[in-house]
Amino acid sequence: MAQIGRRNSLIVLHSTPHGVYLDGGEHGEILLPNRYIPKGTSLGDSLDVFIYRDSEDRLVATTEQPFAMVGEFATLEVVSVNRNIGAFLKWGLLKDLLLPFREQAEQVYVGDKVVAYIMLDEKTDRIIATTRLNRHLSRERPPFKPAQPVPLLITARTPLGYNAIVAGTHLGLLYHTNIGAPLQVGQKINGFVSAVHPGGKIDLSLDASGYQRVASLTDRILEALKNNGGKLPYDDDSPPEVIRSHFEASKKAFKQALGALYKQRRIRFTNPGIETLDVREAKEGDWKPSGKP
């Protein structure tokens, strides 16, 4: 049976002037309008389509890809507000996604970017969004291990740091002490699990710990040098936000990695920037790492 709000592989049954009809199983035949039909499509072909309801509550198919599907979290922009029913979010399809007033944790305005969960409304069977996120996070014991890399979605700033959805399932916390530069609500970023407490709370970091962190980062720096002709404009005096943007690492971790490469005679400091050192002996007068934090 075709799943509403998800991608499905459906068989082409027959064509009409308006498009082709697909086999939706218990949902019956579902129209794929002409503008979405791939060239060369024939009866009996299997097509990868997304299923949703149109403005007249009919199930329709599209080959377009929404920014998020049912069961997923995403950062979406508010494009309009209807004072009777709620806000509408841009989500990558011709029809905008409804965020009903009852599903708004806080009032939203046109131009806002909100972190939302995509769901099926139990009453209408329509796809809607909600910013009441906690009810849709997993209550199961987190399966994560310390130092495990995980994708993060920043949901809120708190006095302690930033709340983040971990791998699309659980809520974790990034402490201010583990962040080199401010983050934005709705930002996607890669991070690491620092600890999973007995009660299920998850501590997060933007860097792996210890030698593993430094070793991985040195490899990325050397690869960046190789791809940029042996030179880079970044060093231990570069702003934290610049380092985070280019290397997904804190300034502290970046400085440790540069120090390791310098001791290995792999790089020299050019003030500003670094370059690959082709010889194992440092030359007299070479720039050395600064002592600034």
Rank of each mutant, 00 (worst) to 15 (best):
Leu206Ser: 04
Lys226Asp: 15
Val214Met: 01
Arg139Pro: 01
Arg126Tyr: 13
Leu174Cys: 08
Pro151Met: 06
Lys226Phe: 13
Gly230Asp: 09
Asn227Phe: 13
Asp236Trp: 08
His136Phe: 08
His197Leu: 11
Leu160Ile: 10
Leu183Glu: 08
Pro240Ala: 09
Ala260Gln: 14
Gly199Ala: 09
Ala249His: 03
Pro143His: 09
Leu206Glu: 09
Leu171Pro: 10
Glu140Arg: 11
Ile221Arg: 04
Asp219His: 13
Pro143Trp: 06
Gly199Lys: 08
Lys251Ile: 14
Lys201Pro: 08
Pro149Cys: 00
Ser216Cys: 10
Gly229Leu: 04
Ala129Leu: 01
Asp203Trp: 10
Tyr262Gly: 07
Gly200Ala: 03
Leu171Arg: 10
Ile128Ala: 05
Gln187Gly: 09
Val196Cys: 02
Leu133Gly: 07
Arg266Met: 09
Arg132Trp: 10
Asn228Lys: 03
Pro146Ser: 04
Arg244Glu: 15
Asn178Ile: 07
Leu133Ile: 08
His136Gly: 08
His197Glu: 13
Ala260Ser: 13
Tyr211Ser: 14
Ser238Arg: 11
Pro240Arg: 08
Pro233Gly: 03
Asp219Met: 12
Ala156Val: 07
Pro151Trp: 03
Ile189Thr: 03
Lys231Asn: 14
Ile127Lys: 02
Asp237His: 14
Pro143Gly: 09
Asp237Asn: 15
Val185Ser: 00
Ile267Glu: 07
Thr124Lys: 06
Gly168Phe: 00
Leu258Phe: 08
Arg126Phe: 14
Asp235Asn: 10
Leu174Ile: 02
Tyr175Pro: 13
Thr155Arg: 07
Val166Thr: 00
Leu232Thr: 00
Leu171Val: 11
Glu122Leu: 12
Leu232Trp: 02
Pro233Thr: 05
Ile202Lys: 05
Leu153Phe: 02
Asp236Val: 08
Pro146Asp: 09
Arg213Val: 09
Leu171Lys: 11
Asn178Thr: 06
Ser205Asp: 03
Thr155Trp: 06
Leu206His: 07
Gly210Tyr: 04
Glu241Tyr: 10
Phe254Trp: 07
Val185Leu: 01
Arg244Gln: 14
Ser245Arg: 14
Arg213Cys: 13
Leu206Phe: 05
Val193Asp: 00
Asn163Cys: 10
Asp125Leu: 12
Tyr262Arg: 07
Ser209Pro: 13
Lys251Gly: 11
Arg126Thr: 12
Gly200Leu: 00
Gln184Asn: 13
Arg220Asn: 11
Ala129Val: 05
Pro146Gln: 07
Leu217Thr: 05
Tyr262Lys: 02
Leu173Tyr: 06
Tyr162Cys: 04
Ala257Val: 04
Arg126Met: 15
Arg268Pro: 15
Asn178His: 14
Gly172Ala: 01
Pro182Asp: 11
Leu204Met: 02
Arg157Gly: 12
Arg141Phe: 06
Leu232Gln: 01
Leu183Gln: 08
Glu223Asp: 15
Ile189Asp: 01
Leu217Ile: 06
Lys252Val: 14
Leu153Asp: 02
Leu160Asn: 11
Ile127Tyr: 03
Ser205Gly: 03
His176Ile: 15
Lys255Leu: 03
Asn228Pro: 05
Glu223Ala: 12
Lys255Trp: 05
Glu223Cys: 10
